[in-house]
Design a binder for these strands. Structure first.
Lengths: 145, 145
DNA sequence: GCTTGCCCTTGAGTATACTCGAGGGTTTAT
DNA sequence: ATAAACCCTCGAGTATACTCAAGGGCAAGC
């Protein structure tokens, strides 16, 4: 059982264009062609594409993903490299998650202010303070009142 | 007390180029200019820039950030719009976090396999299975071994 | 008062990741 | 056997977010 590129697009959510682009970019060195030159995807290929989307979801650039897939193609000899690549990436993802978490909390705070009954008062106060700061420094007021 | 663009770059971690780019893109409508045409940043401006980086960290595109900052400039009348923009973004961030978390767990699994004493065996088995699948479908084997 | 360093704008260049149209071969269903 | 639907490559186009060089004005120290 093999799949056409259209079927793979439907299964993965990636567009046909994207799949071809990935192939051309060297992310899919495992995909075989039939005699007509058509790509034929196996279930194992889908697994590997799933790994690619995991890496992409976590923000890995295509060039790094390509490197990883190339190493996968070379068999067990590249396990140390893959291990390093993935564990470095893991650290980056953890850091990124922490940053997002922090920013999210600050946004939640802003939302809480907007939802407060006295939101208008708060917002006005904040706006006035910033404008006063400009005036105090002899600067033009960029706020249209 | 005001800051030059260079000082703001140092304080925020954004490059001078990026700050100017953001200004030109309409993300910094609050920044005043002195008589020479130089940007002069106040502490309040730094706060607003911090909000921008929070939005950016959480993946908001610059066009949306610009919209938000424009609304901020217009005072309390735009609180409902801002609320909607932020709460929609909040939902997107939560979804994104969940996706990252899921992908991260799958990557952790891969790492665990690579760290296992029998990693070579596992990797070889997986590779063989994929190659067997190709052969079973009469496809060329794209693996060099 | 002059050099050095900082600021400005404008416009072009870069990187990344797609997205699509043209032109042409293949497969499938009628 | 032929039209519709699908596949291919290649090259160009788009979107986003910077990044930088050129050319020129301003400012602070010696």
């Amino acid at each position: 059982m093999t799949y056409t590129i259209k079927e793979v697009a439907a299964k993965t959510g990636l567009s046909i264009y994207t799949l071809r682009y990935y192939d051309q970019a060297g992310l899919l060195p495992f995909v075989s062609r039939n005699t007509a030159g058509y790509r034929e995807f196996t279930d194992g290929d889908l697994q590997l594409i799933h790994t690619i989307t995991c890496l992409k979801t976590t923000g890995m650039p295509l060039a790094k993903i390509r490197q990883y897939m190339t190493e996968v193609m070379q068999g067990p000899a590249t396990i140390p490299q893959r291990q390093q690549l993935l564990s470095e990436h893991r650290q980056a993802v953890l850091a990124q998650q922490a940053q997002i978490q922090q920013s999210l909390q600050e946004l939640d705070l802003k939302l809480a202010i907007y939802q407060h009954p006295a939101a208008v008062t708060f917002v006005n106060a904040e706006l006035s303070a910033i404008q006063a700061e400009k005036v105090a420094n002899g600067l033009p007021n960029p706020f249209k009142k």
